[in-house]
Amino acid sequence: MMDSKYKLTLGGALLGAFTTAAVPATAQTMDVSVTIPRLTVAEYHKPYVALWIEQAGKPARTINVWYDTGKKNNAGIKWLRDMRQWWRTVGRTTPTPPNGVTGATRAPGAAKISFTAGKGGMPALTAGSYTLVVEAAREGGGREVVKVPFTVSAAGTAKGSGKGSFELGAVSLTVRR
């Protein structure tokens, strides 16, 4: 079983190397779109957002954290725990701020991010059931968690989508090779 999988992957890599396909990438990639809703409030602060992947029986993996990276002495990390589910599930048991997965907060709109397996916090996703969890916490605003369950096929691909109501809009993902 392991062997045949390995051969398949190897075959794909060889194929990629010898053809000039429109999508030459053979590394597994997860494209995620997270929509931050535009809110008409007197004092708006861009939300802190954490994205992580859960799989039954495995430790959760943080793949992206957006926080206020511009504060003196990196003081913005103080509020990472306001993403309370992320903090409890994975944030407090990994370095603060997490290594190699952080970025600045983002303005309202659809943020599109691609994660490559083996880079940053992104694990290689073998066939099975997963959940992408997105949590947004806004200063002076609310906090919302959107869970997007998805199933990775034997070919290593998947699709999933979810939707928030207050602090998050549409969330979608595509796992491709």
Binding site: I77, K78, R81, R92, T96
Partner: peptide, 9 residues
């Protein structure tokens, strides 16, 4: 109940 652990909270 949950502190970041920066040492000065």
């Amino acid at each position: 109940t949950m502190f970041t652990g920066s040492g000065n909270e």
